[in-house]
């Protein structure tokens, strides 16, 4: 047993109990249904903005893009306009591909030592595939939840739902995004637990978000398919939250509060964790800078003068020898 995932799993179970017991036994509905969600949102906004502003205020002293293709030099050599972008548009496309399609991760290979001493590299697509599946299904689930915050429910949200539920299995219809989300989470978790290298580098703070999002997904799926909850009441609560007229309708079960509590913990935890990669990816200097670094001068705001060994000092030291060797000098001794 590994302390890192055990601790994270236990943490999520404790969170579950806190909310469930807090609501069902102690009746802390207002606390878990109104106060904590508001507090979490405030922490999220303040934390997120602080982090982004902190990054943004930090200078980028040198242009250090990683060039992943041919540079633009001679007119007859075809440059890689996206992987070695010299224009803002090239950078825009590079970033778009990174952010929407995880392009760098797409390159992933797996190294193997074969026949004793032959290295081989194979395209490793699974991490890329499941990472995409995870992020897009999570996004879909998130967007679907707009139905709880908007009245009337916008057409685009309904459309998304109908796309998501096109399989039409059973009643209520199965939403693919939820299943995919859980499957992708499971993949990401299992690779951390079973691939020795990945287990070795994983921290508790890598398992915790996985378990937490699983908790969110599982409680959501339970409410949708297995345990009846008062949807109308829940919507009253969520609409109350977003319109700043919070109310706690009767008859919403503890499971919903657990779901909401998990979400609250998730968003409050977000700015203080690795989840901030969501913001960082936009600002990574190895990706978001143009590579025309010899054509345009990049300014370092804190550039300062340094002590150098001048030519005069150099000649002073070596003048005799230079003259002896017939090298031109500035001063003939």
């Amino acid at each position: 047993m590994n302390i890192n995932y055990l601790a994270s799993l236990i943490a999520v179970i404790v969170l579950f109990l806190l909310a469930y017991v807090g609501v069902e036994a102690a009746g802390l509905r207002y606390f878990f249904g109104v106060l904590l969600p508001y507090l979490a949102v405030i922490i999220f906004i303040v934390g997120f903005v602080k982090k982004i502003v902190g990054w943004a205020k930090t200078p980028v002293p040198f242009p250090i893009p990683t060039t992943c293709g041919q540079q633009e030099t001679l007119s007859w050599i075809k440059p890689a306009k996206i992987d070695n972008p010299t224009t803002g548009f090239g950078v825009f496309v590079r970033m778009l591909l990174e952010i929407l399609f995880f392009r760098s991760l797409f390159r992933n290979t797996k190294m193997e030592l074969r026949e004793g001493d032959k290295l081989s590299y194979e395209w490793e697509k699974w991490l890329w595939l499941f990472a995409l599946a995870f992020h897009y299904s999570f996004l879909t689930v998130l967007l679907r939840h707009l139905r709880f915050f908007l009245e009337p429910v916008p057409g685009c949200v309904k459309f998304l739902e109908s796309m998501d539920g096109f399989l039409q299995i059973g009643l209520p219809g199965i939403m693919i995004s939820g299943i995919l989300l859980l499957a992708a989470l499971l993949f990401l978790l299992l690779r951390r637990i079973f691939i020795p290298q990945i287990r070795y580098i994983s921290l508790a703070s890598d398992y915790f978000p996985l378990f937490l999002i699983m908790g969110i997904a599982i409680t959501g799926i339970l409410m949708r398919y297995f345990i009846r909850v008062d949807i109308a009441g829940i919507k009253e609560l969520t609409i109350g939250l977003v319109t700043f007229h919070p109310i706690i309708p009767d008859g919403i079960g503890g499971l919903f509060y657990v779901h909401l509590f998990f979400v609250s913990v998730f968003i409050a935890y977000f700015p203080f964790s690795k989840l901030m990669h969501a913001g960082g990816i936009f600002m990574s200097p190895t990706r978001n800078l143009t590579t025309n670094t010899r054509a345009t001068r990049h300014i370092n705001p804190w550039n300062y003068d340094v002590k150098v060994h001048t030519y005069e000092e150099y000649e002073d030291e070596f003048r005799e020898k230079m003259i002896g060797a017939g090298l031109p000098v500035e001063k003939e001794s």
Binding site: W55, A131, D206, H277, M283, S284
Partner: peptide, 16 residues
Amino acid sequence: KFRSFKIFMDVCVRCG
């Protein structure tokens, strides 16, 4: 002084 350093300290998800 270095945005690169700050971001690289913060955002790694240890995907491996």
